[in-house]
């Protein structure tokens, strides 16, 4: 499967899906009006990968600085899909939030408690403005 790299847009995050290495990254702000249009292709390919992971292990990083509620549905679809990853496949999920950003942190905690996934919450320093 062809890798995906999408640079950060005006209201969309940086996305990297390396299906050979099993490395996935979602970083930055995500507040498109029609979030599904942006995420559908990514989610579809990720779902195919999850059924039969081609990499020896999978590492996913979510590092959102902000996202709108419209981003929630595709994100939830990703988490639901990740729950179906073969049990013996090493999976690491990192949910990063900027220090003091309780809303993003809380959301990571919710996903952690509401799914069976091992989501590691990681606090990052706020970048200098």
């Amino acid at each position: 499967m062809q890798n995906i790299t999408i640079p950060a847009g005006e209201n969309t995050p940086y996305v990297r899906c390396d299906f050979q290495k099993g490395v996935f990254e979602f970083k930055g702000a995500s507040y498109p009006e029609y979030a599904r249009e942006f995420y559908d292709n990514i989610v579809e390919k990720l779902e195919i990968y999850i059924q039969n992971p081609t990499a020896p292990q999978t590492h996913i990083t979510f590092a959102f600085t902000y996202f709108n509620t419209g981003t929630n549905p595709p994100l939830m679809t990703i988490f639901k899909a990740l729950e179906k990853m073969p049990a013996d496949h090493p999976l690491q999920i990192e949910w990063c939030y900027e220090d003091g950003d309780e809303d993003i942190r809380d959301l990571g905690e919710y996903f952690n408690t509401l799914t069976t996934l091992p989501i590691h919450l990681i606090s990052l320093p706020i970048p200098e403005e």
Partner: peptide
């Protein structure tokens, strides 16, 4: 969020529900 984490029936989704979590 819990409600939205259930298995969604994609055939029943509308354009609005696909882009809004009711949040």
């Amino acid at each position: 969020i819990k409600y939205n984490l259930r298995d969604r029936d994609k055939t029943q989704e509308t354009e609005k529900s696909r882009n809004s979590a009711g949040l």
